Simulated scan of single mutants.
Amino acid sequence: MASTNPFRISIIDYLNAAPLNYGFKHGLGYEHFHLKFHVPSLCANQLKSGEVDAGLISSIEYLRIPKLKLVPGLCIASPKRVRSVVILSKVPPESIRTLALDTSSRTSVVLAQILLRERFGVDVRAVDMAPDQGAMLAQCDAALLIGDVAMRTRREGLIVLDLAEEWHAWTGLPFVFALWQVREDAARLDIPGGVGPFFHRSLEMGRENLPAIVDEAWRTIGWTKPELREYLTENISYSLGEAERESLALFFEKAVANGFAPENKPLAFL
């Protein structure tokens, strides 16, 4: 049924999500939406508990949280090399025995362990840790870091595994890290077209204002503006097309087979 209550959206405040979030953060549909800002794992928790109606959350959570629908056509994916989701290792991949996990993103945690297990033939002992590169590598052979933290990491003298690049080399497919996911019981907005078009318009506004996003990131990330623009236009993709759906199906199949999700299920869209 239609509702006069605000539609509650949980927002990832990472650079790779900035174009998707831009419209919402700059007043799009302000009379309809209430925004909350979290890391992906907390977005997922709030969506599961019903504290929010929609969230830009890790793709693996689609298999773990019941009764969700996806916003069609949108995601955070990487066609080949992502640069912001990496394993930094002191030893070759085949020799990794302990892996420190930044648990801010649950999809990356699953992908890292699947790649090490199936691509490199090692079954590591995973250790959940705060995203502190020094502490992680002091305790473990390798560390998984994601997002803006990963973009700022020191990589000299370390072996770097870019997870999207490894997935692409293994499967020939892009990798889908996150999706806009909406609770089936979310109240409907009493407006033509409902909530769906707002998500697409928010991304359109982000693309229109990409120089502003790059300028803000330049002050905090430490990359040059050309590097940041390349990251947001080439390393990251926001379109959920046929190849991305194929990749999701394969990732979900492997996640279930490796015990990271209870069961597979088809994609359902708004």
Rank of each mutant, 00 (worst) to 15 (best):
M1E: 00
A2L: 00
I11E: 03
K25T: 07
K36C: 12
V39Q: 05
E51F: 10
V52P: 14
G55V: 07
G55I: 08
L56A: 07
L56W: 12
I57P: 04
S59T: 15
I60A: 11
I60L: 15
L63A: 03
R64V: 10
A77Y: 13
S78C: 08
S78A: 15
K80Y: 10
V82M: 09
L88S: 12
K90D: 05
I96P: 00
A100Y: 05
L116N: 04
E118W: 10
D123A: 08
R125W: 03
A126I: 06
A135P: 01
A135Q: 14
M136P: 05
G147Y: 11
G147N: 11
D148T: 08
M151D: 03
G157L: 13
G157Q: 05
E166F: 09
L173S: 01
P174Y: 06
F177P: 00
G193P: 03
V195A: 13
R201L: 08
E204P: 01
L210I: 10
D215C: 02
P226S: 15
E227Q: 15
R229H: 12
R229L: 14
E230G: 05
Y231A: 09
L232S: 01
T233L: 11
G241L: 09
R245N: 00
L248F: 10
A249C: 03
L250G: 05
E253Y: 08
V256L: 01
G259W: 07
F260I: 14
A261V: 14
N264M: 13
F269E: 03
